[in-house]
Design a binder for these strands. Sequence first.
DNA 1: TGTTATCATGTAAACGGTTACATGAAGGAG
DNA 2: CTCCTTCATGTAACCGTTTACATGATAACA
Lengths: 332, 332
Amino acid sequence: MASIQDVAKEAGVSVATVSRVINGNCKVRPETERAVRQAMEYFHYHPNFSARNLRRMETKTVLVLMSTIVNPFLAKIVKAIEDVGMQQGYHTMICTTYDDAAREEVYMDLLRKHFADGAILIGTRLKATELRKLRQQVPLVQCSEFIPNLMIPYVTIDNRRAGYDATKHLIQLGCRRIVHITVDNGSSSSQLRMKGYRMALEEAGISFDPRLIVNGNYGYRNALSLMRSFLQTKIPFDGVFANSDRMAAGAIHSVEEAGLKVPEDVAVVGFDNTDVGYLVKPHITSVSQSGKEMGEAAAQILWKMIEGKEVCEKIILRHELMIRESTRKNII
Amino acid sequence: MASIQDVAKEAGVSVATVSRVINGNCKVRPETERAVRQAMEYFHYHPNFSARNLRRMETKTVLVLMSTIVNPFLAKIVKAIEDVGMQQGYHTMICTTYDDAAREEVYMDLLRKHFADGAILIGTRLKATELRKLRQQVPLVQCSEFIPNLMIPYVTIDNRRAGYDATKHLIQLGCRRIVHITVDNGSSSSQLRMKGYRMALEEAGISFDPRLIVNGNYGYRNALSLMRSFLQTKIPFDGVFANSDRMAAGAIHSVEEAGLKVPEDVAVVGFDNTDVGYLVKPHITSVSQSGKEMGEAAAQILWKMIEGKEVCEKIILRHELMIRESTRKNII
DNA sequence: TGTTATCATGTAAACGGTTACATGAAGGAG
DNA sequence: CTCCTTCATGTAACCGTTTACATGATAACA
C-alpha cells in the first residue's frame, strides 16, 4: 500500500508538495501537479484516513445512533441527516443498538475515542448520567426521543399534545372506553403520549382504567395477539389509540376477527402516518410528524456545535392528526 | 483532551507502560497499574482511535453498503452481520446509498482510504470495473444482490429458481396470463426472477406477453397506481407475481377495487415473506428467504478475508414458497 | 560471590499524513 | 546593480498511539 512518501519520490518532489496537490489549497506549478497526479495514479494512491484524522484532529464523520432501522419514520429522519451531512462534506454512519446496553456502550466508547466528530441520538436507552458525561467530550443532539435537562439540544414534537389530540378525537367520536396500546420501553414519546391520553380523559370526565393499557413492541403481530387476549377478557371498549400504525393495524384485525366493526364499534388511531396506514382497510387515522424536518433540524444543530458554537436548542415541531376511515363516523 | 503522554506523566511512568495497561497484553506491576488507572480516570482519558488505527494498520470497522434501510428483509441481514461482527470485536457501520452514484462514490472512497477493514455490499449499483479495482484494495463480499465473475464472493438465493417456483405455482392454479411486477433497476435479483418467470411460462407452453410486465419501485402506493392503470387497459390477466410483498399488496387492492376477487379471479404472489404479507387480507403467498442465514454467511466470509485468507465462495441459500390465502384455490 | 535468567519498565522509532517555517529563484522597482 | 516581493517548493516537527529493543533490578543457581 503506497504512502505519500512513495508518491513524492516517484514524482521527484517532497511530501509537502504532494499534500498540497491532494488538498488543492495552495499554489503548485501545473507541470509539478501533473507529475504528482501521474505518480498517484501509478501507485493507485489514496491518502490514509487515520493519518489525516490524527493530524487534523477531526474525522468528518458523524454517527446516528438508533435502536432499529426498520421504522420508516426514523428512516426519513436519517435520510434528512445524511443529506445535510453530505452538503457539509461529512460521512454519516448509522449505528443500531437494538436497545441493547452492550451495543450502546460500544458506540459511546467510539465517540469518546473520537471515532466521529459528533452524534445524533434517535431513541437510545442511554442513561442521563452517561449522556451528561459524554456530551462534554463530543457534540450530541437528541432527535425524536429525548431526556430533558441534560444540556443536550433536542428536536421533537409535543408528544403529550399528540397523545391528547388523538385521544380527544376519539372522545369526540363518542368513545368512552379507550384502549391505549403503548410501548413500555421508557421512551419519552411513549410516556408523554400516555400523559396526553390521561389528560384528555380527565378533561372529558372519564376516569382512567389501567386495565385498558396494553404494552406492545411497535409490531403488527405482537399487537394482534395482545389484542386477541384483551378481547377474551371481555373488558368493554369502544376505541383504540395505538403508539404505531402497525399496532393499530393489529388492533383493527383482532377487532374484526371478533366480529366487531371498525370504526362503528371500535374506532382506531395509530401513530407516525406510515404507509401501513394505507395498506390495511379501513385506512388508519394517524398522527403525522415530519421526519424530514426533524432530521434536518437536528443535523443543523449538530453542525453548529461541531463548528464550535455553544447551543442548547429545544425545538418542538408541529404534528397533525390525519383523519381516515378507521375513525370516520358521525361526530356526535 | 488528554493524551497518553499526560497520563504517563501524571502516573510517573512512561507512555509504553500506559499502553501496556490499556491493552493488557503485557505484565505490569499491580501498583503501577493502579497508578496508571488513577491517572486515566483523572483525565477522563480514552485512547485516540485514529492514532491507534494508524499505528496498527487496521480499524476494527466494517461497512455495510445498502441502497435503503427501510426493507425489513435487508434489516435482518444487517442484524446478522452486526451480531457476527460484535463477536469478532468489530464495529459495523451502515451506509445508505439510495442508489445514488455520488453517495456510492463517497463510500467507495472511504474504503480506498482504509476507513474500514472490509465491506459487505447489499444491493448497490456499483459498476463491475469499479468493484474489480476496489476488491484489490479491501476485502469485499456481495450479499443478496451480486455481479458474477468479479472474484468477489457472494451469498444469495437462486433467484431464477425462485421466480420459476412462484410462476409455476400460479400456473398450477390454472393461471395463464400472469402479470409480473418487477423493478427495473438492473439488480441481479430482478433480472433473474424475470428469467425464472419466463422459464416457467415457456415450460407450460404459454407465450411471453411483454404487455404483462409492469415496472415498479418495491412500494405499495406505486404498485397500487401502476396496477390501476394496468386494469384500465383491459388487458386480461388472472395472476400476479410481484417482486415484493408491498407491491403484491398494491396489486391485491387495485384488483379488489376493480370488483375482482383474490384469489378466485386473480391469484397473487409476493416476495420476501415480510409482515406486510400478514397485514393485508387475503394473506399473501410469498417467497421466503432467510436474512439471518444470508447475513451470517456473508459476515463469516468477510472475516475470513480480513484474516488474510484468499476466498471466493459463492453460496446459494435455499428459499421457500409460503403459500397463503392469496393463491389458495383449488388446484386443477 | 559471580553468572545468568526473569521481569518490569523505559527509550525511541515507526505509522502516514499536514503545515509552520525556511529557502532560493525570479521578477519588479528604484 | 541592489533591495524587496512574490512564488514554488523543501524541511522537519507534530498528531497519539504501539512495540522492538535496551536497561537495570531482582531472583535463581552453581
